[in-house]
Amino acid sequence: MQPANAKEITKLQELTYELKVEAAMTRNVATISPTATMAEFREVLRANRISGTPVVENGKMVGIVSIEDLIKALAAGELNAMVGEKMTSKPATLYADEPLMQAVSKFSQLRFGRFPVINRQGELIGMITQGDIMRAMLKRLEVDYREEEIHRYRASHIFEDILADDVALVFGYRVAARDFARAGEASSGLKKTLGRLGIHPQIIRRVAVATYEAEINVVVYTDGGEIVAEVRPDRIRIEVMDKGPGIPDIEQAMQPGFSTAPDWVRELGFGAGMGLPNIKSCADEMDLKSTVGVGTHLTIIIYCDGLQKTGSGS
């Protein structure tokens, strides 16, 4: 499977898209006016222990001046020259609201040590170095990592932490009728939750497939309903309840290939009469009760130690 470091790289790439330049840059940057002399610029560098500064006139950035410009001025004996004459005008800049990715690629393209950061009005609001980018990413990684650790720790120890003779966790999900775009969100949420609880992946897969098929049924055929999952250390019980119209002939509905699905459902890749048989093959126990005009109640039980169940889950 995927090596751990490949995942990390993707995570870093993701972060460079997610984080904005603004989040990594240094604010309160020392600046200098274009009418200041190079001698004054030297003092700014010394006082702030920096090697370059943006040149700002009336709030707008007009250029950038660096220690290299100072050395050249020194060599030419032009310490009294104005910064405006010695600076680099129209320097490469970054916008505060650009993704960090933009900064990373500019650093590697232009090989500058730093970039001034401006807002969309052209006003200087900060500076960014490669070190700033690194720090911002590490900080964010640490926060994300801690949060996930906390989630996992709390969740996977929950059964051990709770002192009781009998522990059951109950999760409820609402399923809207005919909202096909969101169909599967309940199953997706349940799958993620079971992962955090440290349930075996094969068990999770069976629960996910069975719940998803049931959820699709609720979305497609009913007036909406709910899914309730009750998780115990030894078994997971999923109840899927809807508000009708109900199934007239359950035995017929259970037959592989039997379907009453309208065309739009078939076009989406469902409705071939495999849903209930699929659920059955994932479940250790399955019970389907329905009353026409009232609703349908499906119960699925999957044992957490029964890994060897054949069917789509193994």
């Binding site: 499977m1 096909f180 775009a181 169909a183 599967g184 199953s187 997706s188 799958k191 992946p201 897969r205 996910a208 497939v209 719940t211 998803y212 098929e213 699709i216 989406l268 890749g269 469902f270 071939a272 495999m274 849903g275 048989p277 699929n278 093959s281 789509s312």
Partner: peptide, 30 residues
């Protein structure tokens, strides 16, 4: 047929399909 995918897909599988709606991704996830 997404129900077929749910029935025969295994962890680590690559899916070839002609369907492009979001439920294909949901099915893949499950």
């Amino acid at each position: 047929l997404m129900s077929d995918v749910l029935a025969f897909a295994q962890e680590g599988m690559l899916l070839m399909t002609g369907l492009t709606n979001p439920q294909v991704v949901r099915t893949a996830e499950m």
